[in-house]
Every structure is written in C-alpha cells, then in structure tokens.
Amino acid sequence: MPIWKKIEQKQFSPIYLLYGTEAFVINETKQRLIQSVLTEEEMDFNFSSYDLEDIPVEAALEEAETLPFMGDKKLVILQNPVFLTAERSKDKVEHNVKKLEEYIANPAPYTIVVFSAPYEKLDERKKITKLLKKNAEVMEANKLNEKELKAWIRTRAAANQAQIEEEAIDHLLAIAGTNLMMLASELDKLSLYASGEQPITVEVVDQLTARSLEQDIFALVDKVVTGKVEKAFRIYYDLLKLNEEPIKILAVIANQFRLIYQTKELARKGYGQQQIAGFLKVHPFRVKLAAGQARSFSDEQLAAIMMMLADSDLQMKTSGMAKSLIAEMFLFKLQSLMQKTG
C-alpha cells in the first residue's frame, strides 16, 4: 500500500525515512503526517523539528522519548541527517549514532520520528543506513520520469475532483515544465476552473497556465522551427514587456539550443532518453522535447546558430548597442538561416 494511503488511514510507522531530491514530495508527505497525526491544539505541545546540522541526534531522541502532553502521539522531524550519506561530514556537531541505533531497535510507541534526507543517495554500506532502511517506512522521492509525472498529474487532478485529458497533460508539461511545486499550483487553479463539471482540456491549459521563461523560449524556438516567425517575435516582445532582460533571454535561448545540440549528438551515439537526461542532468521530458526540435536542424545549422549566439553574447557585453536590438538581430539572423537552409 502506498505510504500516503497508509497515512490517510492512520496506519502509522514509529519511524519514517524520506529521502531523495524531489523536495515537493518530501514536504507534502511531512505535511500529510502532521495533519493526520496531530490536531491544531496538539501542535504546540507534541510537534518538534530539529536540524541535525545544528543539533546532535541524541538531543532529538530525548524529545522523542518524552511522553506526549495533552495527546496520544508526538511527531518529531529530523532534518538533514548527513551521516546517512557518503559525504564527508560538515556538521558543527558530533552525533551519537550508537544512541540512534538503540532507539531504532526499540522506538517509543507514542512517538513518530521522521528522517527528512534531501539526498539523491544514501550510503548503503553504513550500519545505521541499513538499520533505518530495515526498520523504517521508507519513501524514495527522486525526480519522476515522464510516465510517473503524468500519473502524478492525473492523481493530483482527481484529488481536486477534476479530470484532465491526456493531450492537456502533455500541453501542461510543455508550458509549465516539470517542477512539481509549479505543476501543483497550476493544477489546483485548473481544477478550480473546471469545478468537476468538465474535463481540463488543452484550451483551458493554454488559457490559464502561467509560463516560465524557459517554456516561453522553448515556444519561441518552436515557432521559428515551424516557420511561424511572427509568433516568435511576438513572444520576444511580450517578454520585453514583462521586463525580462535581453541578455537573460539570449542566455536561455542559448541553453535551449545547447540542449538540442547535445541531445542530437548523444542520440547519434546511441544514448536513450533516460541516459541523455542523466548525462545532462535535466528532466527526461525536456530531453524528449529537445529531441523533437533537434529533428528540424542539421548539424551545420546548429553549429552556425551556436556561433551566432556566441557573437550576440559578445556584442551585448562589449558593444554600446542596445541589448534588446542585439537579441532582435539574432532572431532575424535565425529566421534567415532557417529560410536559406529549409
């Protein structure tokens, strides 16, 4: 049974280990625990949170072993247990890990202890890590792949009494990106608009979803690729109206073309989508979108575009010309290049 379902049904474990780089999932799980374990009145007396970069673990365990006041349960959250990783300890304090081992073997029945570890990997060689993984309810919260991301979107919409069409899911990811906090905010807004009476469609997503700068740049590049240059310039002028700096716009355009070039090159060498994402340290969905755009450019075009971007960047930093004009000139050159070689 998934951990969230157990929490909803108040099937609590005395110890939880939440680790991974997806901070939104970890924080949401902690919030669900807080809401399920304690009432508002009990929060002041029976909730504690310790940063283990500042507080020794044995001090937190003393709190865990103290009986709850005005309630049946206590909740103790232990943040940043770096001693579970292979990293060299930068702690200002020394931890009595032996005391922790003893607690794990015999946890207080009235306390729920949560280890919140924002690390991609734990050191499986360490005795304390093995002990925790064996005795705790463990949730790994690393970045979701495309399939998991889409399932998460459906689940989030359903929790808001809304349905979202498959095409709308793709469009939402293309516009809002893959950050779960941003997606959650947008889904809550879309669900409120739909009010459970109608599904969330592509049109609704397009109308209501806030776009990040990166997604606007992706759309701008896409318009150039598909020959819709007027729309590309419209996006650029809209970004200027929103007070986005031309040098920043150009930098994000450069990042997008760099991703397209690297994706094309790695795919040619036989790397799959997940491997490319891991190598470039970006979300697989971004690689999928970049791979789609890469098909529209030859190697010669991409080399020429990267050179044009480097020249434009140098001009912005050394010439007295208006930066907005330099970025606009780059777009005209890009349009001309695509027309000549298209």
Rank of each mutant, 00 (worst) to 15 (best):
P2A: 14
W4F: 15
K6V: 09
E8R: 14
Q9K: 14
Q11K: 15
S13I: 06
T21F: 02
A23V: 02
N27R: 14
E28P: 08
K30T: 05
V37A: 08
V37S: 12
L38K: 12
E42Q: 15
M43Q: 15
N46Q: 13
S48Y: 12
Y50P: 07
L52E: 11
L52Q: 06
P56M: 13
M70A: 11
G71K: 01
G71T: 03
K73F: 11
V76S: 10
V76T: 06
L78S: 07
L78K: 07
Q79I: 03
T85E: 07
R88P: 02
S89V: 00
S89H: 00
K90H: 08
V93S: 05
E94K: 15
E94D: 10
V97A: 07
K98M: 03
K98C: 03
E101G: 00
E102K: 13
A105G: 15
A108Q: 01
V114G: 04
A117I: 01
E120D: 14
E124V: 11
K130Y: 05
K134L: 13
N135F: 06
N142R: 11
L144E: 08
E146D: 13
K147P: 00
K147W: 03
K150V: 00
A151E: 13
A151Y: 03
A151R: 11
A159I: 00
A159C: 00
Q161W: 00
L173G: 06
L173Q: 03
A174W: 07
A174C: 11
A176Q: 05
A176K: 09
G177M: 11
T178G: 15
L183S: 05
S185I: 04
S185G: 08
D188K: 04
L190C: 05
S195D: 14
D206K: 15
Q207C: 04
T209Q: 04
A210L: 13
S212I: 08
S212G: 11
D216S: 13
K223W: 06
K223N: 13
V224M: 12
G227I: 01
F233L: 12
K241F: 14
K241T: 12
K241R: 15
L242R: 15
N243L: 06
E244D: 10
L250M: 14
V252N: 07
N255G: 10
R258G: 09
L259S: 05
E265S: 13
L266T: 06
R268C: 08
G270V: 03
G270Y: 05
Y271C: 00
G272S: 13
Q275M: 02
V282E: 11
P284L: 04
L289Y: 08
E300H: 11
Q301F: 01
Q301C: 02
I305T: 02
I305A: 04
M308Q: 10
Q315P: 00
K317I: 02
E328V: 01
F330Q: 02
L331R: 00
K333H: 09
L334H: 03
Q335M: 14
